[in-house]
């Protein structure tokens, strides 16, 4: 039981990091970026490559892995989204392109690194927690603590820095932001890059606790999106709550029913909740976080 909760919470943390990505990008650029989950795959899988195949020291490999995910985010913005954005393409075109981009990233990983799931050593070898007679793998603790710190850092940047104010200004009105000298294109680049780094780090963190493979991008993308909507699209605390809830529910369904029912239940929950509370579980605006 404790173990299932630990697994659920840790996976949920990664959903939350993905969900923050969806929210931040949507709020600042108006784009729903379905490639968000592929950063998790890219972060985990390329860390594996840098460590196991290229033979780099583990911390360096993690940095490089997160770097790859970050570059993917910047590339998605610069090469794919920005040109469409400049032409004021309809949002469904942009949405489709992000799905295509995510599919390309997933397929490339499959071709480059093969279909086998891979894993990584824990970040803090030998570290574990005793909790209610159960031994909880230290990596779960790492994921939870790192996620909380990242979320705090993220909301502090949004709340207290001029970059954060510029992002919130963009979210409130791109026209007004522009007349105040803020370039929405620059803010978009920062949002895509920062959230890709967040997803990539999530992938590098969760891989030692579980595994990574070329096709996990899709499920993290979908569950991250569900988490974002569940918590309240655009809300930072909402992303955290939605992610954790979804992670724990998934873990229980996977353990006691069947992992093939995870998606059914997650979507069922989403449908019910959105009927009852269309704005999601938590608040409405991440600027009020």
């Amino acid at each position: 039981m404790t173990l299932i909760i630990a697994i659920g919470v840790a996976t949920g943390c990664v959903y939350s990091l993905v969900a923050v990505g969806y929210s931040l990008i949507y709020r600042t650029t108006g784009v729903v970026n379905f490639a968000q989950g592929s950063y998790v795959m890219a972060g985990g899988f390329s860390t594996y490559w840098f460590y196991e195949i290229a033979g780099l020291p583990y911390p360096v490999a993690i940095l490089c892995g997160v770097g790859v995910a970050t570059m993917l985010g910047l590339a998605l913005w610069t090469v794919v989204v920005l040109p469409l954005w400049r032409q004021r393409s309809p949002s469904y075109v942009v949405l489709l392109e992000t799905i295509v981009f995510g599919a390309i990233v997933g397929t490339s990983a499959l071709l480059l690194l093969g279909p086998l799931p891979q894993t990584l050593p824990p970040w803090l070898p030998g570290f574990a927690l005793e909790f209610g007679g159960n031994r909880i793998d230290g990596q779960y603790v790492v994921v939870v603590v790192a996620t909380v710190l990242l979320m705090l850092a993220f909301s502090a940047v949004l709340r207290f820095t001029s970059l954060g104010r510029s992002m919130r200004a963009c979210a409130a009105s791109r026209d007004v932001a522009q007349l105040l000298g803020i370039s929405p294109e620059r803010i978009g680049a920062i949002a895509f890059t920062a959230t890709a780094a967040l997803g990539g780090l999530g992938g590098a963190m969760i891989t030692p606790a579980q595994f990574t493979s070329a096709d996990i991008g899709l499920s993290f993308g979908v569950f991250g999106f569900v988490a974002a909507v569940l918590g309240g699209f655009g809300s930072l605390p909402g992303a955290l709550v939605g992610g954790l809830l979804l992670g724990v529910i998934n873990a229980f369904v996977g353990r006691y029913i069947s992992s093939s029912y995870q998606t059914v239940l997650a979507f069922g929950l989403l449908l019910v909740l959105l009927t009852l509370r269309p704005q999601g579980l938590v608040g409405k605006d991440w600027e009020e976080a």
């Binding site: 104010r165 919130r168 200004a169 979210a171 409130a172 009105s173 007004v176 932001a177 600027e287």
Partner: peptide, 10 residues
């Protein structure tokens, strides 16, 4: 702007 445009949420 003609329509006052405060940045909502700030």
């Amino acid at each position: 702007f003609q329509q006052a445009a405060p940045l909502v949420g700030l």
